[in-house]
Design a protein around this nucleic acid. Sequence first.
RNA 1: GCCCGGAUGGCGGAAUUGGUAGACGCGCUGGCUUCAGGUGCCAGUGCUCGUAAGGGCGUGGAGGUUCGAGUCCUCUUCCGGGCACCA
Length: 847
Amino acid sequence: MSRYEPKTIEPNWQAAWDAAGVFTARRDPSKPKYYVLEMFPYPSGRIHMGHVRNYTMGDVVARYKSARGFSVLHPMGWDAFGMPAENAAMERGGHPKDWTYGNIADMRAQMKPLGLSIDWSREFATCDPEYYGQQQAMFIDMMGAGLVYRKNAVVNWDPVDMTVLANEQVIDGKGWRSGAQVQRRELTQWFFKISDYSGELLSALDGLKDWPEKVRTMQANWIGKSQGLQFAFDTVGAPAGFDTLPVYTTRPDTLMGASFAAVSPDHPLAKALAGDPAVEAFLAQCRLGGTTAEALETAEKIGLDTGIRVKHPLDPAWELPVFIANFILMDYGTGAIFGCPAHDARDFEFATKYGLAIKPVFVAEGGADAPLAEAFVPMKSEPVQYIRGFAGADVQTGEAAIAAAIAHAETNGYGKGVTQYRLRDWGISRQRYWGCPIPVVHCDTCGVVAEKKENLPIELPYDVTFDIPGNPLDRHPTWRNCACPSCGAPARRETDTMDTFMDSSWYYARFTAPRANTPTDAADADYWMNVDQYIGGIEHAILHLLYSRFFARAMVKTGHLPAKAIEPFNALFTQGMVTHEIYLTRDDKGRPVYHLPEDVVDGRLKDGTAVEVIPSAKMSKSKKNVVDPMNIIDSFGADTARWFVLSDSPPERDVEWTSSGAEAAHKHLARVWNLAARIGDMPAGYAGEGDDDIIRASAKAVSEVTQGIDNFAFNKAIAKLYEFTNTLSKSNGSRETMRAAMRTMAQLMQPMVPHLAETIWAHLGGAGLCAQAAWPVADPALLVDASVTLPIQINGKRRAEITVPADMPAAEVEKIALASPAVVKFLDGTPIKKIIVVPGRIINVVV
RNA sequence: GCCCGGAUGGCGGAAUUGGUAGACGCGCUGGCUUCAGGUGCCAGUGCUCGUAAGGGCGUGGAGGUUCGAGUCCUCUUCCGGGCACCA
């Protein structure tokens, strides 16, 4: 071994692994299987540090599990449909397909030098017709299973470009290209009945023990189960067909504080009143702006009194005005509510604005019935005192009062308790080209008919243009024309394509049999499913993971997955982002001009201009705070990049990229290399000294690094490897002991820096490839320390310490502690009130 | 607006179930090596008072529980993620 030159060794080892087929996943009944999957990338064209971090973590797990004797599946593919490809076509010309496949080739070329243990023979892209054709087949099966339907839904409409906009394309309520005020508009869309699974998707979260608690909590809140009361107001002065107005409330205990009723602008009653010009003008105002929950909930609350009145269910003489109000969502409950301003912040704001009564139903325990300055919303567990409650409700918690109110409604026959979910059905229609075509046909006589499976895949036409806004499939001269699968008459294809979340909701299943001519293969799915470890960004905590959980259920129902795959991801790990400082200068109008980190040295540009520095944020192209991983790989090698992204920051947290960090990583690897070289040069028969300590240190390193990897604490595993390196470089053991310790080092480092590990392993006489060697195991007897140092606290403050045999009884430890000079001196005869001895931990003397 | 996280030295972070706060790394300081710079090696490094011995203070902020709190509870500030058509 001469000098550490990663550029020489890395390609050689990658070729050696390829030649030995080390990473090819095989169904091997003699071994337990392990399926590790990282969320597949969108092919933007360049890999970034986040990718390196994500795939390195997955690689550590894959290589570790392989060393532990598992048959490992570790695949890679491309989430290749989506808007950026169409945007590129619009901005730079060219075709989304060419752009996408070009990007895939570029990114694959950037990923290969990382030395990831990926089975590249399973690679696919979701825009491959072989993939999306199978997706269309499943869509047809799911239609047959009653999981798909059409209904109206609200979209962002750009009235100038005459096109539907994604939420991302609505900036401050305006279209991103046209700048026009965006409107909410209804369109007929395709939906999946995910809401049929609300209860199950919620209750099954309890079984996902190896998912982060926060992800389960977020999903549970998203599904949003609530127990409430549904009842109908009798109306006064409403149009025909609206004799009653059904409402849903989670706070029926506040019914005695009702002061108005309100319906959503999308409510049938609001639509029925739209003939009135004042109502129509108001509804038009409500339609302005985007469709996001944030836009709807932060918009100023506005309402219009319809003149209609409803009768309070407990007092027919008590009438409430009916408003149309912009903050009522048609998608939740019945699209109509009663307002209790005293105990709901939104209702309070609304009532104040429109001069409606604010009538408290309960007060804080011991409080008085007084005018409120703001809505009084106690915590659920907090006892309150009902002053306008139902019979029998005294001082109690909200939950008990709600149950009493529901019971009252059911007993008296004006309402019933219902379970409601916030989760809405999954709208999958997109009015865009670069997605999977929805395989249905519109026929004048037969209606909406599924395409025949033998006609799949329904392929996207290549001859499309992006010179004008809108869906190119709509304006294609011939693509829409087809024969009705049912009657054979001329018919029209659906031009909506599928949400790209569909593509990523089953790719994990496809990886188990990527070339099968059905969506999945029973034997392969049975062997490889489930994903044992799934790794990806926390930003996918809700949508992608919830859709995947639903889709797995739909695949089980339609026979495309075995029942055991109903929850497809056994364990989930969510990683943090890679961040970097942002550098900028100002143009003559004071607008920021961003600069790449590589162009900034010591706070200055090359021409000497000082830059402003903004604290670290997620790497993004627009802020130019990106570091191209290829630069590091070119100058330091893949192992340095891998070691660096695993060091320091815990995997679940954000990591700040610093050039000094990358240099430090490289320095350490060179140090390990030099240590291995020195050990390799030791003369035969060299006896040295301290072998026992080296053997103990090795065992400790094995135990601690293994624990670090098992717990996804790669930063800690690496800290232990630093300690082990420090110990070994200071040791002077026998040749054989040093060589064995260094081989252990190579094995422990192999998941993180596989190329360096192979070189050391080979140099010090390891048999075969390090990547195929069995993981080392520590002898437990070597891990136990004979003596232990205990701190002595006096009144909780550390004053002294003693070292005692680890197995000394507590009574004896206490005696020695009290006799120690520092304690005697400090106490100076003060009587002891209490003494606490925690064996192996601490002694606390209370005086 | 709603839901979920996070905050520890100059910096990234460590701290099984509440039990020695600051492991490990970076940076910095001093020394050795070197013609010099870099590399490499050795030592020191939370803040503060003190010549020292030793003391005081310290985990975003304010309270609380406990013999003992970075860790548990309540409130709060700031930062980040998500909010259903970004992927």
